[in-house]
């Protein structure tokens, strides 16, 4: 088998000239005067339902209101009293299959695309994807305008995984018809927490 030296050496030999790294700090990135407003527009366009002006204490009633038939609710958040499964202490990821609602908390949102940053914080991150529906919490003050700001703000912990999620799983692979709920969550409700 080849080694790093073989392949890196080949690259070194074939590089014809070294070009400098461009300056990126001068990008005139769009900044919104009201990032929250744009975030709501984009997240809605990405297929999310938005619940505004709420507190963490309201979570159980929001879940009931949005997903009245949900039986299996997975969350590691202490405020979710109605949780039936905790993704932090189940044995294996497969055990999360059949989850009706996964409740997860994001760190911040991005206005330009309606995405939310979720670093892994529980043992089985599958909860973010395997659940039929996702309820995502986000502090309404924690919205940045664009991905440049977002990547300055991302943090990782020892789990070594993070994901931006913009709405429910979707596909247009059959005849370019947009369908929500391909392999991961079929719906996503964003709860904007008032500080």
């Amino acid at each position: 088998m080849s080694t790093s030296n073989d392949i890196i050496g080949k690259c070194r030999k074939n590089i014809r000239q070294r070009l400098p790294r461009p300056c990126l700090s001068d990008i005139d990135a769009t900044v919104y005067t009201d990032p929250l407003e744009e975030f709501i527009i984009q997240a809605t366009a990405a297929g999310c339902r938005i619940v505004k002006d709420r507190k963490k204490e309201d979570l159980d009633s929001i879940i009931k209101e949005c997903y009245p038939d949900a039986k299996v609710i997975a969350s590691a958040l202490p405020e979710v009293k109605s949780a039936t499964v905790n993704p932090d202490n189940i044995k294996k990821a497969q055990d999360l299959n059949g989850t009706d609602v996964g409740v997860i908390e994001g760190k911040f949102g991005v206005a330009e695309n309606g995405a939310i940053w979720f670093p892994q914080e529980v043992k089985e991150r599958a909860v973010d994807f395997i659940s039929e529906n996702i309820v995502a919490l986000i502090d309404e003050d924690e919205i940045v305008s664009n991905m440049h700001q977002a990547y300055q703000k991302v943090t990782f912990n020892d789990y070594g995984y993070g994901v931006f999620i913009a709405g429910p799983s979707k596909t247009a692979d059959i005849a370019q018809v947009l369908v929500m709920g391909a392999q991961a969550a079929r719906s996503m409700t964003i709860v904007l927490l008032k500080s």
Partner: peptide, 15 residues
């Protein structure tokens, strides 16, 4: 689309 639905960053194996 303004972004894909999932932009996933893998750094390590799962616990």
């Amino acid at each position: 689309q303004p972004s894909t639905t999932y932009t996933s960053h893998f750094r390590k194996a799962r616990p």
